[in-house]
Nucleic acid binder design. Structure first.
Length: 154
DNA sequence: GCCAACGTTGGC
DNA sequence: GCCAACGTTGGC
């Protein structure tokens, strides 16, 4: 499957991922729909768009790859972390993380506005009003269209 | 910084 | 199990 995963670049950007020598942990997701995606639908080797949220402009900035399986997010047990969850069951099943590796940074940001205006992306979840999931599926045709935009030098 | 949308919590 | 209150996301 294909995915879109959001991060605020002030917190973690695609440049941070590109600098990372090995896999990076995608942590801190605290939404059950996202948890279920990461647990049940996401697979080793899946590709994902890296989306910068709360940015100027917000948009898709590159591609990464999921490596390995889901595992308990260690930040849920870390009292010093902003992601600490005092009610998290000890088995770690409430909040999961995934490892990701950098694949490519696009020549340019593909802003949300452009996604909304691009034929074929009318149903893309990230363009929907009120859509707040930080991890969401992308269809194969959406993937191909966005990838072509990202590899153009417009 | 505003606020719409929507997820989560908790009283009942 | 309903639903009001509250918290969070994230575009603008």
């Amino acid at each position: 499957m294909y995915w879109l995963m959001k991060s605020e670049p002030d917190v973690y950007s695609i440049d941070d991922l590109a600098r990372s020598s090995g896999p990076a942990m995608w942590e801190g997701c605290r939404n059950y729909t996202v948890r279920n995606f990461m647990r049940d639908r996401m697979a080793d080797g899946d590709l994902a768009f890296f989306y910068h949220s709360n940015s100027d402009p917000s948009g898709i900035v590159g591609v990464m790859k999921i490596v390995g399986e889901a595992f308990p997010d260690p930040t849920q047990f870390d009292a010093t972390s902003e992601y600490f969850d005092p009610k998290a069951p000890a088995d770690g099943s409430r909040w999961l993380a995934r490892n990701v590796v950098f694949v490519q940074k696009f020549n340019r940001v593909i802003p949300l506005n452009e996604l909304r205006e691009t034929p074929g992306l009318e149903e893309m979840l990230v363009t929907k009003r009120g859509q707040r999931l930080s991890v969401m599926p992308v269809t194969e045709s959406e993937w191909a269209i966005v990838l072509a935009l990202g590899q153009s030098s417009l």
